[in-house]
């Protein structure tokens, strides 16, 4: 059913990672992702992998959720591995057959790339699992605040507001779609069979009511916002003030140490 589509995969739990300031979390995640690609050898990659695993355990988000995300891009992982294994033709030949030549270096390369992708997926899902979409947009808005010096202050606010509203209404729209689909199915609408053209035609009874109710909702929301004197971003204050706490500085420090370790491993090994 359509309800199975998850968006903003926030998983509520109590952990230090959930409580971190979203700005810090966003910056740390970006740096972490960059360092996945800085890691040049097996030791530094293993180190960064262990760190990721540790963070997953600390976050208290079930491991099965991460596995589900990896499963979703399994095809990409396999494809890159195969391509890497085929293209790298140096080193000991393990298998030679027709025009295909698999070498030890190729296999190594393939494993290395797969590990990188898996770590990348886990660490970025860690951010979305532990941060609500609203927190994330808040963080983006705050981080982009310096843009006001080049006259883009209002634009940043408007973008952030648009993202927040869009995220807020995704579950509502999914629910609405579900309801309209049920109603039309109850009137015998056939959404599951027929030629492509018939199927597209069968969507009209769903899309027309959905579009109408979205426009109605947009008007209602605009009016409700105006009634509460909303007139853009300037001079607005926030109910939830983002404030850096001890744990935020601590996590920054931990990350800097880890990053230096990776650079060191890169040089030593």
């Amino acid at each position: 059913m359509i309800k199975d589509i998850t968006f903003g995969q926030y998983f509520p739990a109590k952990s230090i990672i959930h409580r971190l300031d979203p700005r810090i979390k966003l910056v740390l995640s970006l740096m972490f992702i960059i360092f996945i690609f800085v890691a040049q050898n097996a030791v530094s990659l293993a180190f960064i992998g262990t760190l990721t695993l540790l963070f997953v355990l600390i976050s208290r988000v079930p491991v099965s959720l991460f596995l589900k995300n990896i499963k979703a891009i399994l095809f990409v992982i396999i494809l890159t591995s195969v391509l890497n294994a085929l293209y790298v033709t140096t080193g000991n030949v393990l298998l030679e057959f027709w025009i295909i030549k698999i070498t030890a270096d190729g296999v190594k390369r393939a494993l290395f790339m797969s590990a990188r992708i898996i770590i990348l997926i886990i660490s970025s899902s860690l951010l979305t699992y532990t941060t609500t979409p609203t927190e994330l947009t808040d963080a983006i808005e705050r981080l982009l605040k310096p843009l006001r010096f080049i006259g883009l202050g209002e634009a940043v606010h408007v973008m952030a507001m648009m993202i927040t509203i869009a995220l807020r209404f995704i579950p509502t729209l999914i629910e609405e779609t579900d309801k309209i689909m049920s109603a039309q199915k109850a009137r015998g609408a056939d959404l599951e069979s027929g030629t492509l053209f018939e199927r597209i035609k069968a969507l009209i009874p769903i899309l027309v009511p959905l579009l109408i109710s979205s426009v109605r909702r947009a008007y209602d929301l605009a009016e409700a916002m105006e009634c509460r004197c909303y007139n853009g971003g300037s001079g607005r204050q926030r109910m939830k003030q983002l404030k850096l706490a001890g744990r935020d500085y601590l996590s920054l420090a931990v990350l800097v140490v880890c990053m230096s370790a990776i650079i060191a491993f890169n040089i030593i090994f």
Partner: peptide
Amino acid sequence: RKIRFKIGMVFQYPEYQLF
């Protein structure tokens, strides 16, 4: 689908399904 022709259903606020 044949069952749905025998058992009709009018949802809450059914006017939102007009198209």
